[in-house]
């Protein structure tokens, strides 16, 4: 009986979106908080659902409109356009690859293994005396007194006069600075127009920057976000060369894998964080064995 009552997959016999009458309460005119409060007291709990659930994580449509060039029997112009786009992308990719190659691999000299060995020996033996030529009187010093590179520091005290003069100088400098500020205040009053202009210019610049930032933000909202440390890589465009186009439905072969397309689409729309798929287990499998004293050897048992 219990088993019969269990929900079965693939059985749909209710209208999920049918309006349910909430026990004699007209909630139309109540505020949200009031509704929540009253409903809990009527035994109908109402969860507050985060607003983000209503929003889509991206503005990109789930099924993007297809390029007319991927038709099984495209017009010449559309097909050429598609090929051009593909070529452009490929060229960019090659350029980037070349750049990286130039900047990394090609930047360093290539060294043969023998040369490397020699270099290592040379580097390691730097500063050591070669073994074969021994000079007995090369570096040895006979002078017994050793001089330090840094002489010892002495603590010299200033006299009172020196201190007073120093203080007087400091006060004077402060006074001069203060005077300068006062002077500037007066001169600024005659520069009001200039200041106004400067402020206006600054504000204008800020406004432009703000607009730029907003634009960038809206653009960014359209694209794919970085959700994990693995970078999102878009699906390579699928196309057919003109020689591969047959022109009829019978002989067309599918090019790409729709599952991969869907998977990438989910990643593109910020629903799934891109990740490296691990195929091998990281952890070592537990090796199972029977302890020797538990093992039952059938040959040794006498069957009498």
């Amino acid at each position: 009986m219990k088993k019969l009552n269990k929900p079965k997959r693939g059985e749909f016999n209710v209208d999920l979106w049918k309006e349910k009458t909430t026990k004699d309460i007209d909630t139309n005119w109540l505020s949200l908080d009031t509704v929540r409060h009253t409903l809990t007291h009527f035994g109908v709990k109402k969860k507050r659902i985060p607003i983000s659930l209503r929003k889509r994580p991206s503005n990109i449509p789930a099924v993007e409109p297809p390029h007319p060039g991927i038709s099984y029997n495209p017009s010449f112009q559309d097909h050429q356009n598609l090929l051009r786009e593909v070529i452009q992308k490929e060229m960019e990719f090659i350029k980037e690859e070349e750049h990286l190659n130039r900047v990394t691999t090609k930047m360093f000299k290539k060294v043969s293994p023998e040369e490397k060995e020699n270099n290592l020996i040379k580097e390691m033996s730097e500063g050591l005396k070669p073994e074969n030529d021994q000079d007995p009187d090369g570096d040895e010093d006979d002078d017994p007194t050793v001089k330090s590179v840094n002489p010892p520091v002495k603590n010299q005290k200033k006299t009172r006069v020196q201190r007073r003069k120093q203080k007087e100088q400091k006060d004077l400098a402060y006074k001069r600075q203060q005077e300068k500020i006062e002077k500037k205040k007066i001169s600024d009053m005659y520069k009001l127009k200039l200041l106004d202009r400067q402020l206006a210019a600054k504000e204008k610049k800020q406004k432009i920057l703000r607009q730029k930032r907003l634009k960038k933000k809206t653009l960014k909202a359209l694209g794919t976000k970085t959700l994990s440390k693995v970078k999102f890589e878009p699906l390579e465009p699928n196309f057919k060369l003109s020689s591969e186009l047959t022109g009829n439905l019978r002989n067309t072969e599918p090019t790409n894998n729709l599952l991969k397309d869907r998977f990438k689409s989910l990643q593109k729309r910020n629903i799934v964080a891109p990740a490296n798929i691990r195929l091998k287990r990281d952890k070592a499998r537990v090796k199972r064995f029977i302890k020797p004293d538990h093992r039952i050897d059938m040959t040794k048992i006498d069957m009498k």
Partner: peptide
């Protein structure tokens, strides 16, 4: 017959 091109109605 050689078919005319199949154009995309989505563009």
């Amino acid at each position: 017959c050689i078919l005319p091109p199949h154009l995309s109605p989505f563009s």
